[in-house]
């Protein structure tokens, strides 16, 4: 690193912070799917397809999550953001 770099580098964004934030999101997502049964992704798609038959929504408006509690209890959580009615 030469003296000129001192002036240049100050402008560069801190990409390590960006990397960390992106990783935290993707890893949290990955862990959410960790203990899930093999049929889970397909079931998720089918649930979305059924809702779509009645309401016009995109895939991002539906979140399906499987929460595993300590005491052998699994909760299937389904969140749908419905479009505003005009």
């Amino acid at each position: 690193m030469s003296i000129l770099d001192y002036f240049r580098s100050s402008k560069k964004a801190n990409t390590a912070t960006v990397a960390k934030e992106r990783l935290q999101i993707i890893v949290a997502h990955q862990r959410g799917e960790r203990g899930a049964p093999d049929y889970f992704p397909l079931m998720k798609q089918e649930i979305i397809a059924v809702i779509r038959k009645y309401v016009h929504i995109s895939e991002e408006q539906v979140s399906v999550q499987l929460e595993q509690n300590d005491d052998n209890l699994s909760v299937l959580e389904l969140n749908v953001t419905l479009p505003e009615r005009n």
Partner: peptide, 11 residues
């Protein structure tokens, strides 16, 4: 890491 270009050990 010091220049903010690499994830740190702590990260």
């Amino acid at each position: 890491v010091k220049n903010g270009e690499m994830l740190s050990v702590a990260d």
